[in-house]
Lab assay of single mutants.
Amino acid sequence: VDYIVEYDYDAQHDDELTIRKGDIIKNVKKLEEEGWLEGELNGKRGMFPDNFVKEIK
Rank of each mutant, 00 (worst) to 15 (best):
K21D: 03
D8A: 11
V53S: 05
L31H: 10
K21F: 06
G35H: 11
R20P: 00
T18E: 04
E16V: 03
N51D: 10
E34Y: 09
E40P: 00
D15E: 08
D50G: 09
I4Q: 08
F48N: 01
D2H: 13
D23G: 05
L17F: 03
N51H: 05
T18F: 05
H13V: 13
V5T: 11
H13K: 13
T18H: 05
K21S: 07
G43D: 06
G22W: 06
Q12L: 14
K57H: 15
G35D: 05
L41Q: 03
V53D: 02
K57Y: 11
I24G: 02
N42Q: 10
I25Y: 00
K57E: 15
W36D: 01
D50P: 09
W36M: 08
A11H: 04
I4T: 05
K29R: 12
K26G: 08
G43F: 14
R20T: 06
V1K: 11
G39L: 00
I25Q: 00
R20I: 05
D23E: 14
G43H: 13
G46P: 00
L31D: 05
L17R: 01
K57P: 15
K26L: 08
E33W: 12
L41M: 08
W36I: 05
E33S: 12
K29V: 12
E6F: 11
V28R: 01
N42E: 08
L37V: 07
I24F: 05
F52V: 06
I19S: 01
N51W: 07
K29E: 11
I56W: 02
E55P: 15
K54T: 14
F52R: 06
V1L: 09
I25P: 02
F52P: 02
K29I: 12
E16S: 04
E32Y: 08
V53E: 02
D14A: 11
V5H: 01
D14H: 14
A11E: 05
E38H: 08
F48M: 09
N51A: 10
K54I: 06
W36A: 02
N27M: 06
K21R: 11
E34L: 11
L41H: 06
E38G: 05
D8V: 03
A11N: 04
E34M: 14
G35M: 04
E16F: 07
F48T: 01
T18S: 08
D23P: 00
Y7M: 13
F52M: 08
D10Y: 14
K54H: 10
M47R: 10
E40S: 10
Y9S: 02
G35R: 06
E32P: 10
P49L: 10
D14M: 12
I24S: 03
W36L: 04
I25D: 00
V5E: 00
V1Q: 13
K21N: 05
P49K: 14
D10S: 12
E34F: 10
V1N: 12
E32H: 10
R20W: 02
V5A: 07
Y7L: 14
F52I: 07
Y3Q: 02
N42R: 13
I24A: 02
G22P: 01
P49F: 12
W36N: 02
A11G: 10
L37D: 04
D2E: 14
N27V: 05
D2A: 15
L31A: 13
K54E: 13
I19A: 06
E34W: 06
N27P: 00
K29D: 09
D2N: 14
K44Y: 09
M47Q: 07
L37W: 06
H13W: 12
I4V: 08
K57L: 15
I24P: 02
M47P: 05
E38F: 07
L17K: 00
N27E: 08
G46Q: 01
K26I: 14
E55D: 03
E32Q: 14
L31G: 10
D10K: 13
I4L: 07
D14W: 14
V53F: 03
V1F: 09
D23N: 10
K44H: 08
E33A: 12
G43N: 10
Y3W: 11
E55F: 02
K26H: 13
D15P: 08
K21P: 04
P49A: 11
K30R: 07
E38I: 11
D23M: 15
G46K: 03
K30V: 12
F52W: 03
Y7W: 09
E38R: 11
K29H: 11
V1W: 06
A11I: 01
E38T: 08
G35L: 04
N51R: 13
Y9N: 04
N42T: 07
V28S: 07
Y3H: 03
L17S: 01
G46V: 03
V28I: 05
K26A: 12
G39I: 01
D15M: 13
D8K: 05
N51K: 14
Y3F: 06
I19T: 02
V28E: 00
V53N: 03
Y7I: 09
E40K: 06
D10M: 12
E32M: 10
I24T: 05
E33K: 12
V1G: 13
D15R: 14
E38P: 00
D15N: 10
D23I: 04
L41K: 04
G43Y: 09
N51G: 09
L41G: 02
L31P: 14
H13N: 10
Y7Q: 13
D8R: 07
E16L: 02
K44V: 11
I24M: 06
N51V: 11
F48V: 15
Y9F: 10
E32G: 11
G46H: 01
W36R: 06
L31N: 10
P49M: 14
Q12P: 03
G39F: 00
Q12Y: 06
L37A: 07
E38A: 11
D2R: 15
D15Q: 13
D2Q: 15
K30M: 09
A11S: 12
V28W: 05
W36F: 09
K44L: 11
I56N: 05
D14V: 13
Q12S: 10
